[in-house]
Design a protein around this nucleic acid. Sequence first.
DNA 1: AGCACTTTAGAACGGAAGTTCGCAAACAGA
DNA 2: TCTGTTTGCGAACTTCCGTTCTAAAGTGCT
Lengths: 272, 272
Amino acid sequence: MGAPGDFETLKQRLVEIEPSLPKRLKQTAAFALQHPDEIALGTASGVARRAHVQASTLVRFAQALGFAGFTELQGIFRTHLRTRWPEYPERLKALHARAPDPGDPMSLLLGFSESAVRSATALRAQIEPETLQGAVELLAQARVVFLLAQRRSFSVAHYLGYAFAQLGAPALLVDDVGGLGREQLALAGPQDAALAISFAPYSPVTLSLTAAARAHGAKIVAITDSALSPLAALADRRLEVVESDFGAFRSLSATFCLAMTLAVAVAERRGR
Amino acid sequence: MGAPGDFETLKQRLVEIEPSLPKRLKQTAAFALQHPDEIALGTASGVARRAHVQASTLVRFAQALGFAGFTELQGIFRTHLRTRWPEYPERLKALHARAPDPGDPMSLLLGFSESAVRSATALRAQIEPETLQGAVELLAQARVVFLLAQRRSFSVAHYLGYAFAQLGAPALLVDDVGGLGREQLALAGPQDAALAISFAPYSPVTLSLTAAARAHGAKIVAITDSALSPLAALADRRLEVVESDFGAFRSLSATFCLAMTLAVAVAERRGR
DNA sequence: AGCACTTTAGAACGGAAGTTCGCAAACAGA
DNA sequence: TCTGTTTGCGAACTTCCGTTCTAAAGTGCT
């Protein structure tokens, strides 16, 4: 069987033979699909470095797919990169023409993507370095960080729980399963901190759990959308995030960026 | 005067000096602007042949613009082709210039924000309109949509559960609380669909729950990171998302955009 | 118009990457 | 333990870029 002639065929062929491939070639396959642009534009040795394999492995990978060598494989990725290019400006144009058919899934995707970009970009200017630093210090000094959020914001809190755990920092997700939120908070004390996340319309559960944490003496860091938020009144440190929205739907991308930042910065600070 | 640092500057410089350029260099300039992708992807001699000039002329052309040689000039065209985000390189440069200390929380924030922007931007080119449309149809025709995800991806599934509920579309978050995932899936049948989300390293629970859903006859839509993902093998419709990463941490912003899109599009489609 | 000087184009050369292949060590399966 | 496969490393080969040298074209001055 000959070598694939286009990118789709290549992908398909890859899926077929991947199970029978040895370890390094699997690794290479995964990298190739994940970073097609690297393959297209880079040199074999450069790609090899980034994929943590030997340059010769790339050649063997190409040969396993039926190509003569790396250069031939690269050709497929290059034409793919080149041919994919023209449709992009059209999509963008469609987006900025304010979505002729607002129900079309692709316009929705473009809208949400645009909104996420705006949010994440705006975040850089919104957050004061000192405020962020203060929040990190406060969380890093805590014995345990309690994570408080409900409804829309809960996904952020859950992600934080995951990230803190991965980083080896002590955090506890107060998920209020079975209405046991108060009991989950029972262990909180003055050495602890709570990271509360809530946006308008503020979930009453989050607010009351935050108040309870405060009553236990825990320090509060709040991620919320305005200084006037009821959550802000309860907080020792306040991080304000204004998300841009598309239609009736607010992005979460800035909030997630901030959450990731807190998790990594706190873990790093505790490490010292 | 130094060499242009990005494509726009290069173009501008070219317009400025073009009148004073000798014949062959004018010819080269015209070709470069007309076929930027040739320059980005080809070799000097290949480009020279297509532009009907000598290879050395290309080097002289590059030098006339202030570059050391052809390779340096090519770099600009390559990053331009890769990022496809004209204003972007400058920002990136500014970002990295302003953030020399990688441990500083603010640099982390900038890094994550940049990574989110890249992810959300790349998403637009990654998703094929037909694939997206197909996934939406499939989910809209289902009696109930089961949401399957664990660990890092769980936050997305939870958000989807929230969004579907808000939009009045029947969806059920299989959270596997207390290990009851299989029981939560017991109601699934051939009229239903499952939306499974998993990225490397793929959670075994998600995989087995997806397989179980499939065994019940439910149609599967997968959001995953590559065609080689074990989840892809189980799926009727496959949505590939490549998230950019910052350090060891992958963004979730593209996945969230896609999730929001699916929720809104499915709800809208059901409404008719 | 002719001549000398400057600028430009083309071609060959040298050096530097980059790619491929062969061999030996490491590994996995029997 | 033995065999077959895979991986890593380095050498050889190829390609490619940048420089330099020479010829030609252009330009200005006499």
